[in-house]
Amino acid sequence: MHDVAKHSHVEGHFQSTETVRDVVIGLSDGLTVPFALAAGLSGAVASSHIVVLAGLAEIAAGSIAMGLGGYLAARGDVEHYASERKREEREIVERVHDEEEEIYEIFEQYSVDREAAAPVLEALKRNPKAWVDFMMRFELGLEEPAANRAYRSALTISASYIAGGFVPLLPYMFVGSNTVALEFSVLITLLALALFGALKGRLVGTGALRSALQTVSIGGVAAAAAYGLARLLNSVH
């Protein structure tokens, strides 16, 4: 028994993809939007104090807006899951034959014939909750949202936005010249994108270097586009 327990197989799958997604959304926007605002203002105003104040105001407004968006999206997922589950609960009672055929069709996708699938179907029919769970996952591809998912999503996105937003503003807080501050802001923003991308790649198993390069490329293009638009609007006015 000791040897069996010692050599038991344990799979290390990453289970927090939704949290990583929320962090990616919040941090990437937090890094790029305040950067573009600060960069655009640095060429229009002489005071770095004004740039910092405007950046902090944007971080506050942006984190609230992003958090609210995350909350509403997560609530929509919860409501959609609940609605589809109620429909499946009705259908296994009112349309038993159709639901049985759907079970066979699901197993056919995995090259399991009707004869082999029949015992599984009978077992599911004796446990209606398990039958509904099976249909939700394999017919509709829906997983039950975690408890308090909406609140956790909102807080994660908001906190990530705030954390990311402070990065491009730091040089303006400590360097008097807006031109020099902008140069440092570009460097630390790209560095933050690279570090975040590498960490994300390690967590989800896609490779640290590949993820870092991808994050820097996408984030850099987004920041450059936002910066260019801000400079264009400044030149027009």
Rank of each mutant, 00 (worst) to 15 (best):
P128N: 07
D113V: 08
A223H: 02
P171R: 02
L121S: 10
F107T: 00
A116P: 01
E84A: 12
F35I: 00
L199C: 09
R75C: 13
E100H: 12
F196P: 10
L209I: 15
V236Q: 10
A65H: 02
L124I: 09
L56S: 08
A223D: 02
L193I: 03
E84R: 15
V52D: 06
D22S: 06
G76S: 15
G207N: 11
L169G: 06
Y71W: 11
K200R: 13
S211Y: 02
V93L: 01
A225M: 09
E84W: 00
A38I: 03
G55F: 06
G205P: 01
S47W: 00
L190V: 11
L170H: 08
L72K: 11
V216Y: 00
I92A: 04
A61S: 15
L121D: 05
A154L: 12
T156C: 03
A117M: 10
A146C: 00
N178L: 07
G30E: 05
A230H: 09
M173K: 03
G164A: 05
G205S: 00
A223T: 04
R114A: 15
L56T: 09
L72R: 08
P145N: 08
L209T: 06
F174R: 05
A154C: 12
G40K: 15
L56P: 04
V4K: 12
P34Y: 13
S48W: 02
Y227I: 04
S185M: 08
I103R: 06
I50S: 13
E122Q: 14
A223F: 03
V167S: 01
H2I: 14
L68A: 12
Y227W: 15
L232T: 14
G176K: 10
A194G: 13
G26T: 06
A146E: 12
R149H: 11
E11G: 01
D133Y: 07
G141C: 06
Y81K: 07
I50A: 13
F14G: 03
G43C: 04
H80F: 12
Y104D: 00
L41N: 07
S63L: 06
I157P: 03
Q15S: 14
H49L: 13
E105I: 03
F138L: 06
Q15W: 10
I162L: 13
V51W: 05
K86Q: 11
F184P: 02
G141K: 09
A163W: 02
K200N: 15
D29I: 00
I162R: 05
V112D: 06
A146L: 05
V23M: 14
G228N: 03
A208Y: 08
V33G: 00
I103H: 11
V33R: 00
Y110L: 10
A224G: 15
M1P: 07
L142P: 02
Y227R: 04
G165A: 03
G165V: 01
G141W: 09
L37K: 01
Y172V: 04
Y110N: 07
L191D: 06
H9M: 10
N148V: 00
S177C: 04
R126W: 07
